[in-house]
Design a protein around this nucleic acid. Structure first.
Lengths: 119, 119
DNA sequence: TAACCTGTTCACTTTTTGGTAACCATGGAT
DNA sequence: ATCCATGGTTACCAAAAAGTGAACAGGTTA
């Protein structure tokens, strides 16, 4: 195991992209749904404030992990989807997920119980 | 690619463990040094407040990713090292690091330039 | 005795993040 | 005219995270 690659600078960049209360959930939806309309997303993630959801989406767009597409209809329709860069996060996210279920099962259960994130 | 495993609950647990301004750096040191004394760590991470470093270490200990060993000497010596659970984070961290260098090279460079994290 | 080192904690302050609720422009439906 | 839905912004507020500086107990050293 060659862990010399932990030039944690890159690690920090990656964590920066992921850090934000709702970003994991957003990614979850976007990984599953290919294309999600804003209001739809907003309704599927109960408890987020519109403003906050917008903020996180904007950050993620700036980070290049998602793509925002505005369609010229009325009422306006705005769709979000993952970019290639975003999809490339897949393995890393899976690895984290893996670690959690293998080494932190209790915490996962506790979190579920506390409903820190609802689905 | 089976991304059905993104039961983002686990993902959130993992990110929780990693989120904290100094945790990546701490991990970096602990992955490389086997055993680090508190003051030593504090001096190697310039700019952290002692209090904050202590906080992050305590959280990481509670999360079970590091181990705190207090030796009965005077003046007191406290050593930190990674636990097995912490070591198990290795692949996930490497994956994140990988993603950053492959898909976010510019951001990494920018961060280095901004000295958001110093080594 | 006084100054010192260590890991910790305390009392605050600042910064960052997240949340609430109102508002806007637009056009379609009632 | 009125109301609704959409995506977005604004002004304001609350909570969390990080930072500052001092203090502590304890024995060591000078």
């Amino acid at each position: 195991m060659d862990y010399d690659r932990f030039k944690y600078c890159g690690l920090n960049v990656a964590l920066d992209v992921l850090s934000g209360k709702w970003k994991p959930v957003i990614l979850f939806h976007l990984f599953h749904e290919e294309e999600v309309r804003f209001t739809e997303l907003w309704r599927n993630i109960p408890k987020v404030a519109k403003k906050v959801l917008l903020e996180q989406l904007k950050q993620m767009e700036e980070d290049g992990v998602i793509i925002r597409e505005e369609r010229n209809t009325f009422p306006p329709e705005v769709y979000y989807r993952i970019s290639e860069k975003g999809k490339a996060l897949g393995p890393a996210l899976a690895a984290l997920q893996n670690w959690a279920t293998e080494h932190a099962a209790e915490e996962v259960a506790a979190m579920r119980a506390a409903k820190k994130v609802a689905l």
